[in-house]
């Protein structure tokens, strides 16, 4: 209970005050390797000493990071550095991988995500996810957006469901393009439209956090720009964590940036500081394009 009270404070506890029970001793030492401030004002997600193993591979090593309300945090780093793995821990999508084991303290609003009594369905309703490849259901556009609201029982009747669908499409900036063909298959849209449909599908459930795993990597520059504008608008209502390979994108859309390297978070800080004045050598090498 003590932990929960603390996490609900306006300012989350810094990494080194996390109770020793949750994190092994050497993990604390390693976690403090992260340069910069891992905490956020008004944190909604709070990770301390997170470790992920895929079989014998240690994919994520003692990471600690907060995600604040109404902030966009970019997770950058070279391929295989664990940023997607970290993202997938935040709504327990790693549960679907049988060899994956997650250790550490992951909290959503102070509640332990991996506790025995935490309902994973509820967690995923609160922490939505947009994937790298647009993956609309092979159903109509309307059904794609309505599905989440329907399974969670968010709408009492058809009119309410219509409101949710139109509202979500509106916020995803898609409603003008599809309002005359809601019964057409969602897979018949263009790549950029499909990705915005997936975003509409995610926000139809009204989550608190949206995780985006390289949402623009399969899109052309124009569609990418539209998604980035959308992220800007959405950040007023949601906390957004976005994994991206494009440093320009990270610079454009995020308030804070975390740099991952070989399973560790090397540096966290305000985006402009990371890109203009990184504190760690590895971060500097990466953002200046010397490797990665």
């Amino acid at each position: 209970m003590l932990i929960m009270d603390k996490a609900q404070d306006v300012v989350a506890p810094p990494a080194d005050t996390v109770p020793a029970a949750a994190v092994p001793a050497d993990a604390q030492r390693l976690a403090s390797d992260t340069v910069g401030d891992v905490t956020a004002k008004d944190a909604v997600i709070c990770v301390r000493g997170g470790n992920v193993f895929y079989g014998d591979t240690h994919a994520l090593i003692n990471v600690s990071l907060d995600i604040g309300r109404n902030e966009v945090i970019a997770l950058i780093g070279p391929s295989g550095c664990g940023k997607s793995t970290f993202l997938r821990c935040l709504n327990r999508m790693n549960d679907t991988i049988e060899s994956a084991r997650v250790k550490g303290d992951f909290r959503l609003d102070g509640q332990d995500m991996y506790a025995r009594d935490t309902d994973v369905v509820m967690l995923r309703a609160r922490v939505g996810m947009v994937f790298q490849k647009p993956n609309p259901f092979p159903k109509s556009i309307y059904e794609n957006v309505a599905y989440g609201a329907r399974i969670h029982g968010l709408a009492a009747n058809r009119a309410e469901l219509d409101d949710i669908v139109y509202g979500s499409l509106e916020r995803a900036g898609l409603v003008d393009e599809v309002k005359d063909r809601l019964d057409d298959p969602g897979t018949g849209l263009s790549g950029g439209q499909q990705q915005r449909l997936c975003i509409a599908r995610t926000i139809a459930v009204n989550p608190e956090v949206i995780l985006m795993d390289e949402p623009c990597s399969a899109l052309d520059p124009i569609a990418t720009a539209r998604i980035e504008d959308l992220i800007d608008e959405l950040s007023e209502k949601y906390a957004i964590a976005i994994v991206t390979h494009s440093m320009q994108q990270a610079a454009r859309v995020s308030n804070r940036t975390a740099y991952f390297h070989l399973g560790r978070i090397i540096e966290v800080g305000p985006t402009d500081k990371i890109f203009t004045n990184p504190a760690h050598k590895l971060t500097e090498d990466y953002v200046t394009g010397r490797f990665g």
């Binding site: 369905v121 995923r124 996810m129 599905y147 399974i151 599908r201 995610t202 139809a204």
Partner: peptide, 9 residues
């Protein structure tokens, strides 16, 4: 993933 991601059981 799409189904699980929006909270389908």
């Amino acid at each position: 993933e799409a189904a699980l991601g929006i909270g389908a059981s």
